[in-house]
Simulated scan of single mutants.
Amino acid sequence: MENSFGITGFIFNDDIQWENVGDGVRRKIMAYDKDLMLTAVEFKKGAIGYVHKHPHKQVTYIVKGAFEVTIENQKKIQKAGDVFFIPSNVEHGVVSLEEDSLLIDVFNPYREDFIKK
């Protein structure tokens, strides 16, 4: 349920619309409050989550598919069931290696830049 700040309580996937974030990547903001945010991010084959950094801590669980994951200057191939953790202000990015790959990202604190004003 949406409340005065965020999406909390019982949340149903079918009630949340995908947001196109460009070039074969789309995202659903599943739940959040000021301290925590969970998003689902879907990538088409070859789609890129460009190398970037932010002040938020991030934990990512790979639900489906495989990715080339870059953390700082190190690259590894990770697949469904694997996890990566990004401390604050560390450069990172991904490239989807399979069609319809899916990640779950958790951020602390929430990503203000993801919330439409």
Rank of each mutant, 00 (worst) to 15 (best):
M1K: 07
M1E: 10
E2Y: 04
N3F: 03
S4N: 07
S4K: 04
F5D: 05
G6C: 03
G6P: 01
I7P: 03
I7A: 01
I7H: 05
T8M: 00
T8C: 00
G9A: 03
G9I: 08
G9F: 05
F10H: 11
I11G: 05
I11S: 10
F12I: 15
F12D: 12
F12Q: 13
N13F: 12
D15S: 09
Q17G: 13
E19N: 12
N20E: 15
V21D: 01
D23P: 00
G24I: 02
G24W: 06
V25E: 04
R26Q: 13
R26D: 13
K28I: 11
K28L: 11
K28M: 13
K28S: 08
M30E: 10
Y32I: 03
Y32V: 00
Y32K: 10
Y32R: 08
D33M: 13
K34P: 09
D35L: 15
D35P: 02
D35Y: 15
L36G: 09
L36C: 11
L38F: 14
T39H: 04
T39I: 10
T39K: 03
A40Q: 09
A40L: 14
A40P: 01
V41K: 03
V41I: 14
F43P: 01
K44G: 08
K45L: 04
G46S: 10
I48E: 02
I48G: 01
I48P: 06
V51E: 08
H54D: 09
H54L: 10
H54G: 08
P55S: 11
P55T: 12
P55R: 09
H56N: 12
H56T: 12
V59N: 05
Y61A: 07
Y61Q: 03
A66L: 09
A66Y: 10
A66F: 12
F67W: 12
F67C: 06
V69L: 13
T70K: 12
T70S: 15
I71G: 05
E72K: 15
E72W: 15
E72I: 15
N73L: 14
N73P: 12
Q74K: 13
Q74G: 11
K75M: 14
K76Q: 14
K76R: 15
K76H: 13
I77L: 12
Q78A: 15
Q78K: 15
K79M: 12
K79F: 12
K79E: 15
K79V: 14
K79P: 11
A80K: 01
A80M: 06
A80N: 00
A80S: 11
A80H: 02
A80Q: 05
G81R: 04
V83R: 08
V83Y: 11
F84R: 01
I86F: 02
I86D: 01
P87N: 04
P87W: 05
S88H: 10
E91F: 07
E91I: 00
E91H: 09
E91W: 06
E91A: 04
E91L: 04
E91V: 06
H92P: 00
V94A: 08
V94H: 02
V95H: 03
S96Y: 00
S96A: 14
S96P: 00
L97K: 04
E98W: 00
E98G: 00
E99T: 03
E99Q: 08
S101T: 02
L102H: 00
L102A: 07
L103V: 01
D105G: 02
V106E: 00
N108I: 03
N108E: 06
N108T: 10
P109R: 04
P109S: 04
Y110K: 07
Y110Q: 03
E112L: 02
E112Q: 10
E112R: 07
F114N: 02
I115H: 01
K117G: 11
